[in-house]
Every structure is written in structure tokens, then in C-alpha cells.
Design a binder for these strands. Structure first.
Length: 646
RNA sequence: GCCGAUGUAGCUCAGGGGUAGAGCGCUUCCUUGGUAAGGAAGAGGUCAGGGGUUCAAUUCCCCUCAUUGGCUCCA
């Protein structure tokens, strides 16, 4: 037996017999470690802990504390669920069952069985029962014909289809207890590691994600090595629900939807409208300083505009149906760019005029499919923080960088520290179909964007085949506190529309030249951004953004008159204050103000009025002592100014 | 658009083949209270809409609409 060297993460190296498993190595280090090992990274690839290592290797033992360890556990959990399902519903067919960010799912064809959410507890129980048997996950190589034969006998057409696409020689099966599945692995040593199970939901999902394929039943679940961790997770889900923008939006009276107005068409209540105004003011100030000019454009346009822009053939289905008027066809606009291009074209441009930056909070209408609507995050009427920058190739890098800097400034103001820029490029095979057919300009612009991203050191991820049809784009993905990930804003390069609109400027050599256009929307749309902010702040907006900054709470109605003077003083300092003059007890008034998440409460009784002071209570933090009205007002102003000076 | 769930008072929800309930909110009255809910009375519902089964439907069945968990999609 030959010896092999195993390099461990602490820098040490140990000798073992060839054929040693990660589990045995873990045991040689400590029993405790061995009890926690779920899988192992061998030379960078995640393996079963029971798999034999035959040559020198770098080893990283994976436990529940590693992302890959969790992933292994959840992958095995999907198999465990499949085993439980097969024993309860013999003959059902399995498609795919991968681990996901939190937990796992399995897509199943339930055949003639009726299956609903009510059946989940039964399956959880079975899974626990099977887990306790500590069945080992056994890996075995299977030849392609044997693999196909196995699933043909089970008449599982999904697995067969999957195997068809695999290379002979690399097909493996895993068996635990009485269940065998096609699987690359890796898996945990045995099912006993799974101690707590929660099946979360049942949903439909198309086979291979294609809406033309049959719909399968997808079961989502999550498992943990300890019951306590499952309890914590469920607690977290509860917390997330409390932050849901749809719930808070109602409670804080920000927005509403109405059947008579229509789905996906939000109505903004005064407090929500205030948020909009405040964000617009921020955008206008920021953009003015950055050399943007504001423009205004109508909400509809003739069909021809969208034919010229090239949008219509790509997006007709997601535009509201056209209107016929005076022999012409009109569309509600679903983007502002063509209108802005026409503004650019309205007056002749010299290179001396560039860059031209047109900004508008434009309202657009998109016919999102009914099932895609989601609170404020996906709507059919949206107000976009839009702008288009027309510049020369030489100016591009600087302009693009300036846009990125604007993003970063906003992130700082809003305390967004978890984000990633997603750099979407085209796919050469789809030129002329999904993308404008101009390979040279695609390459040129993609190179330019990549260069700026690298130079500015912003974290980014490059993804092919996700660009806009007219050029590469950067989407800003952010993560809300409750783990919801979405695209907040977008920054796109456009070389195609300047050509299709024949936008030109006269260059130094007195020649006509096409500008490059940058489409950008750092604050995305009001709808999505405010939806995000509600969840981000859990409804507790920072002072500068709060519709109601201060609420004055008289101890009794006797002091209402005196409080009106305080209210007046605060208003003179431009502080958004209100007076709760109801005949309620102070405890009730405080409770209501706390629930309305008003940042500051001023409690005013005989003592305060006599001494000319205010007693301050901060939302969520309680009594803050007292100050004179002037001191308090200046304190508020300073807090607001700090943010505005970022 | 597709699969599943849900729709009862302004809000959160209970109920159930014999024409409806709670808490909060709202209105009025009493109370004038010092840091998270004072007391009483009252108003408020075509049980999402339409059709069917039934002596009788808010309840059972079908369709539509809306919301929602996902899938697909997101210029």
C-alpha cells in the first residue's frame, strides 16, 4: 500500500495510506470533528466524506458551518424526501432535486395522486423516521445503458432524459435505504445527520424550466442538524413576514391597490407620496450637481417611434395594447429612451455640447403577466429614475464611471452595503434574434464597460446572454435584510439606438458622428425602490425620509393650546411635525406613535410648558431626557443635514 | 400565462346548508390621565362577482375576477 500526503487547511501535512477517506482523516484528528463532517473538499472539489482518496491531496473538511457542507446536507435531504415520498406514493416519478440557497426542493410527477400542502406533515414524519435509521449514502458508477435500463424499468422518463445528456463513464447512482437516485453527489455519510425537517411549500414548476413542458409539483423544504436551529429559522421567517413591504405599506398608510383601478397599479397615499417627493428631490439635487438637465415627455407615442427604436418587435407582448386614434396607432410608453432620443435630435449638436445628460422621473407602463405581479416590486405602472447620457467614445469611460459613483453615493445614503454589479453581455449565437446584429460594436462596448468596472474596483459578476438588445448592461443586485434578492437599478450601454434614430453630432473634423448612449437608473423605479426601503428599514425610515418626523403628545387636552405653539415653532424650522390632540391617555398616544414608527415623540405636560422645554422620546428607544424647543429643532436639522451632505 | 392556495366589517381573523361573529379602528358620552392599549354605548357586511344543485346557499359544485406561494418572464 502506498502512502499519500494530505495537506490540511492549517498548513500542516500528514501521511496516510492510499485509499483513506476524509472521514477517517477527520477521526484521526478528533472524534468530535468526525461527528460533524458532512462532506469534504478534495483538491477543490466537494466529495463524499466516505470516498477514498488515492493520491496526494489538499483536504478541507466541510461541516454545517461551511456553505458547501450545508449544501451537501440539503442535497441529501432532497434524496431523503424522495425516499419518503416513494414509500408513501409508490410509482411517482422524480425529475430533479437540488439544494438551493436555503434548503432544497424536488420536482415530482405525482401521476394520478392528489397532493396538497396538507400532506406535508405526513412526509416530514416519514423523513424523520427514515433519517433515524442512519442509512448510509452509497455511491456507485453505472454504465449509461444500465442507467437507462434502471429508469426505464421504473418508467421514469425524466431521469431517462437527464441520463441521455450525460457521458457514459461519469454516471453515478446513490442509494440510501431503499431509494436509488441518479446523482453526481456528494452526499452526507448517513441520513442520521438530518435531525430536523420542515417542508415549506408546494408549487408548480415546469420540467426543465420551459413553459411548454409539463408542469411538475415542486416541494420546498429545509433541514437542520439540530431542532433548535430549525426553530431559529422559523423565527427568522416570521420576522421577515413582519418586514414585508405589502404588510407595512398598509399599516403605515403608504400605498394601496384597488380592484376598480386595476392590478399592478399602485395608488400612493399621502405618506407614500411624500417618500416619492423626497426621493425625487434627492435625485434632482444629485443629478443637477452631476450636470444633468431635466426634461419632460408624454406617456404615449405613435407606433412608429417604437419601430424605430427597435423595442416593438422585442417587447410588444409586454406593452399595453395599442390605441387607434385619427388613423394612427398609439402605445403607452414602456420606456423613456425613444422620447429622450427625440429630444436629443430636436436641436443640432456639436461635439462641444457633449456629453448631453437628459433626466426625467418618467412614468412607464408595462403589461407584466398577471402571475408576475408582486406588491410594489413588480407593477404595471412605474416611475423610473431615468436618464440618458449622450457622449463620445472618448468620454464614455469617464461618464460611465461617474454613473457608478452616483450609485455608490446612493448606497451610502441608504446604508446599502450588500450589493453586486451584474455585468450582462450578449451571446454571439443570438445576434440578429435577441441582440442587435453588430458584433464589432458589441465587443467594443463590452470591453469598455469591463475596463471601467475593473479600474474602479467594484465587485461584479459577468453573465453572458443577459444583455439588453441594444447593448451590454450592468444590473445592480441588492439583498434586502430579509434575504430577498432583486435587481434594483440598471446601467446600460447603447450603441444601437443612436444608429436607428440616426442621432448625430458634428465632431472636430466637421464630420457627422453617432454618440454612445448610457441608459441609467440608479434609484430604479419609485415602486421597487420604496418597496425595498420599507423592508430595508422595517418601516422605520431615517429622519430625512420620514413623512412624519416628530409627533407632539400632550399629557391631557388641557395642554393642546400650548402644544400648538411648539408645533408652530417646529414648522418654522421646516420640521415635519404633528400634534396628537385626541382625548386619549398619554400611554395610548405613545403606543400609537410607536406603532406608526414616528422617529421622535415630544411629551408635553405642565412641567414642559412652564419651563419652555420638550421631553423627548425616541421611537423604539424610550425616554431621551429634555431639551429646549430650539435645541431639539437644531438637533433634528443637524441629523438631516448630515445625510444630505454625503 | 401555467400549477397550487386564499377571498367574511376599514384592518386582522373566527364561523358554517336554515339569511352573520370577535378584537382593533370609527362615532358619541364619561374620564383630564406623565412614557407602549381607561370605561361605556353606537354605527358599520349583497360573506369578491356570476351561474348551478337545493324547499333553503355566505356555506356544496362550476366559471370569472383579485390576492398569494412558486414556475416562466422582467427593455
Amino acid at each position: 500500500m502506498s502512502k499519500i500526503n494530505i495537506n490540511l487547511p492549517d498548513g500542516t501535512s500528514k501521511q496516510f495510506e492510499s485509499g483513506v477517506t476524509s472521514m477517517q482523516i477527520a477521526q484521526s484528528i478528533s472524534e468530535g470533528l468526525a461527528r460533524n463532517v458532512l462532506s469534504a473538499k478534495v483538491n477543490g472539489a466537494v466529495w463524499d466524506a466516505n470516498r477514498e482518496i488515492e493520491a496526494d491531496a489538499t483536504l478541507n473538511l466541510l461541516t454545517w458551518n461551511d456553505e458547501e457542507g450545508k449544501s451537501t446536507m440539503w442535497h441529501s435531504s432532497a434524496h431523503l424526501m424522495a425516499e419518503a415520498l416513494e414509500s408513501l406514493y409508490p410509482g411517482i416519478k422524480f425529475a430533479i432535486g437540488p439544494p438551493i440557497e436555503s434548503g432544497f426542493y424536488y420536482d415530482i410527477d405525482f401521476m394520478e395522486y392528489e397532493f396538497s400542502e396538507a400532506d406535508l406533515p405526513k412526509i416530514e414524519k416519514k423523513m424523520i423516521e427514515l433519517a433515524r435509521m442512519k442509512n448510509v449514502f452509497e455511491r456507485k458508477y453505472v454504465s449509461k445503458p444500465d442507467a437507462i435500463k434502471y429508469f426505464e424499468e421504473k418508467s421514469d422518463q425524466y431521469k431517462r432524459e437527464l441520463i441521455q445528456d450525460l457521458e457514459d463513464g461519469e454516471i453515478t447512482f446513490y442509494t440510501q435505504g431503499g431509494f436509488t437516485d441518479l446523482c453526481r453527489g456528494p452526499h452526507i455519510p448517513h441520513t442520521g445527520f438530518i435531525k430536523a425537517v420542515k417542508l415549506l411549500s408546494v408549487a408548480g414548476a415546469y420540467w426543465r424550466g420551459d413553459e411548454n413542458n409539463p408542469m411538475l409539483t415542486r416541494i420546498y423544504g429545509i433541514t437542520f442538524p439540530k431542532q433548535a436551529e430549525l426553530d431559529d429559522y422559523l423565527q427568522l421567517l416570521e420576522e421577515a413576514k413582519k418586514r414585508d413591504h405589502r404588510k407595512l405599506g398598509k399599516e403605515l398608510e403608504l400605498f394601496t391597490f384597488d380592484d376598480d383601478v386595476g392590478p399592478g397599479l399602485p395608488l400612493w397615499l399621502p405618506k407614500g407620496a411624500f417618500l416619492i417627493e423626497q426621493l425625487e428631490q434627492l435625485a434632482k439635487t444629485t443629478e443637477r450637481k452631476a450636470g444633468y438637465q431635466r426634461v419632460k415627455t408624454p406617456h404615449i407615442a405613435k407606433e412608429n417611434l417604437y419601430i424605430t427604436s427597435g423595442h416593438l418587435p422585442y417587447y410588444k407582448d409586454s406593452m399595453f395594447p395599442p390605441m387607434q386614434m385619427d388613423g394612427s396607432t398609439y402605445y403607452l410608453k414602456s420606456m423613456n429612451c425613444p422620447h429622450h432620443h427625440k429630444l436629443f435630435d430636436a436641436l443640432p449638436k456639436s461635439y462641444k455640447d457633449l456629453p448631453v445628460r437628459f433626466a426625467e422621473y418618467g412614468t412607464c407602463y408595462r403589461y407584466e403577466k398577471s402571475g408576475e405581479l408582486f406588491g410594489l416590486m413588480r407593477v404595471r405602472a412605474l416611475q423610473m429614475n431615468d436618464a440618458h447620457i449622450y457622449c463620445t467614445k472618448d468620454q464614455f469611460a469617464q461618464e460611465f464611471r461617474a454613473v457608478n459613483d452616483m450609485y455608490l453615493k446612493y448606497f451610502k445614503i441608504f446604508g446599502i452595503d450588500k450589493y453586486i454589479m451584474r455585468f450582462s453581455t450578449h451571446s454571439p449565437e443570438k445576434l440578429g434574434k435577441k441582440y442587435v446584429d453588430n458584433p464589432k460594436l458589441w465587443k467594443e462596448t463590452e470591453d469598455m464597460v469591463r475596463k471601467v468596472l475593473i479600474e474602479s474596483g467594484i465587485p461584479y459578476k459577468e453573465v453572458a446572454d443577459e444583455a439588453a438588445f441594444y447593448g451590454p448592461k450592468i444590473d445592480v443586485q441588492i439583498y434586502s435584510v430579509i434575504g430577498r434578492e432583486f435587481t434594483l437599478a440598471t446601467n446600460q450601454v447603447d450603441f444601437a439606438q443612436p444608429l436607428s434614430f440616426n442621432l448625430t453630432f458634428t465632431n472636430q473634423n466637421n464630420e457627422s458622428e453617432h454618440p454612445i448612449v448610457i441608459h441609467r437608473a440608479p434609484l430604479g423605479t419609485h415602486e421597487r425602490f420604496i418597496g425595498f426601503l420599507i423592508e430595508h428599514y422595517a418601516g422605520k425610515f431615517p429622519l430625512w425620509l420620514s413623512p412624519e418626523q416628530v409627533r407632539i403628545l400632550p399629557i391631557s387636552e388641557k395642554f393642546n393650546e400650548g402644544c400648538k405653539n411648539i408645533l408652530q415653532s417646529l414648522e418654522n424650522y421646516d420640521i415635519r411635525a404633528s400634534l396628537d390632540d385626541r382625548g386619549e391617555k398619554i400611554g395610548k398616544k405613545i403606543r400609537d406613535a410607536e406603532m406608526a414608527k414616528v422617529p421622535y415623540m415630544l411629551i408635553i405636560g405642565e412641567k414642559e410648558l412652564d419651563e419652555g422645554i420638550v421631553s423627548i422620546r425616541k421611537q423604539g428607544e424610550g425616554d431621551q431626557g429634555s431639551k429646549s424647543v430650539k435645541e431639539f429643532a437644531e438637533f433634528i436639522q443637524q441629523d438631516v443635514n448630515e445625510i444630505m451632505s454625503i
